[in-house]
Amino acid sequence: MSMSITNTPTRYGWAAIILHWLIGALFIGQFGLGFVMVRLTSQRTAFELIQLHKSLGFLLLGLVILRIAWRIGNAAPALPRSVGPFERRTAPLAHFALYGFQLALPLSGWALVSVSMLEIPSMPFNLFVMPNLPLAESDAAENFWAAAHWYLAYAGIALVILHALAALRHHFWLKDTVLERIIMPSSDRGAE
């Protein structure tokens, strides 16, 4: 039985599954990398990690935009009948918040490097120079965007942890198919 790239009424397809797990891994990895890079004593290593962090941030931004576009064009599978009315109302809000943080965080990082008085160019994976956002450089703007990026990172990782805990609750406690839908893709015929 071949597996579908698109979603069916009961399961996600390969495209959504790959994007989900790739973005999740990048988002968590970026948090860890950001946490480490600002605590290093070696300026050279910190600089190299910051450049990697920026590269992965631009990659994350592109993947999240692709994921949102894919989601708009491919309806999410219906929740199992076991999911109550409260969760049916809050699940879309939680996903909307996740997408919002996954967009806001790399955008705030891009804004931060754009307003930095250091004027260090961003070169994603050393392939090209990413233009800065049209924002005025200043110490005050840099402090604002640094704080915004920091708060967004911690709020975003808290939301990811809640998302993971909710999925685990469905799988181990409620024993429904909510988590399975994003692990095993749909078949071309849409059968479970």
Rank of each mutant, 00 (worst) to 15 (best):
F86C: 08
A46E: 11
L59P: 09
Q43M: 11
Q51N: 12
A104R: 00
L98H: 07
R39S: 15
N74L: 05
G109H: 06
G57P: 11
L56V: 09
G73I: 11
T41V: 10
T41P: 08
Q51E: 13
P80S: 10
E48K: 04
L112S: 05
L56N: 06
P106W: 06
V83N: 05
L56A: 10
G84I: 00
E87F: 07
A75D: 14
V115K: 00
M117C: 12
A75C: 09
R81M: 08
R39K: 12
A94T: 12
T90D: 04
A111M: 02
L98M: 13
L49F: 12
R71G: 03
F86L: 13
K54I: 12
R71V: 00
K54T: 06
A111S: 12
L93S: 03
V64T: 09
L112Y: 09
H95I: 01
Q51T: 07
M117I: 14
W110C: 02
V64G: 04
L66V: 15
A97E: 07
G73A: 09
I65Q: 09
L52D: 01
Q102F: 15
W70I: 07
V64R: 03
G57Y: 01
H95C: 06
L98E: 11
L103Q: 05
I50L: 15
L56R: 00
E119Y: 14
T90H: 00
L52T: 11
L63K: 14
S55K: 04
A46S: 15
S42R: 11
P77W: 04
F96T: 08
G109A: 03
A69G: 13
S55R: 02
F101Y: 06
T90P: 01
F101D: 08
L105P: 11
E119D: 15
I68Y: 02
L103F: 04
K54E: 01
L59H: 14
R39G: 10
F86E: 05
A111H: 02
L93V: 12
L66S: 13
L79G: 09
A46G: 13
V64H: 10
L103E: 02
A46Y: 07
L52A: 15
F86Q: 10
S114N: 03
L112N: 06
S42C: 08
L79M: 14
S42Q: 08
L79N: 11
A46C: 10
R44L: 14
L60N: 06
H53S: 11
L66W: 15
L60Y: 03
M117W: 01
H53Q: 08
S42K: 06
S116Y: 06
T41C: 01
A104M: 05
F86P: 07
T90F: 10
R39V: 03
V115T: 08
A97L: 06
P85L: 11
A97Y: 02
S114Q: 04
R89E: 14
F58K: 02
G57R: 03
F86R: 15
Q102M: 15
R39A: 10
L66R: 03
V113R: 04
L40E: 07
L40G: 10
L49Q: 13
A97K: 02
P80D: 06
A76G: 05
H53W: 08
T45L: 15
N74K: 08
R44Y: 12
L107W: 05
S82V: 07
F86I: 11
L59K: 06
R88I: 01
L118P: 09
R88M: 01
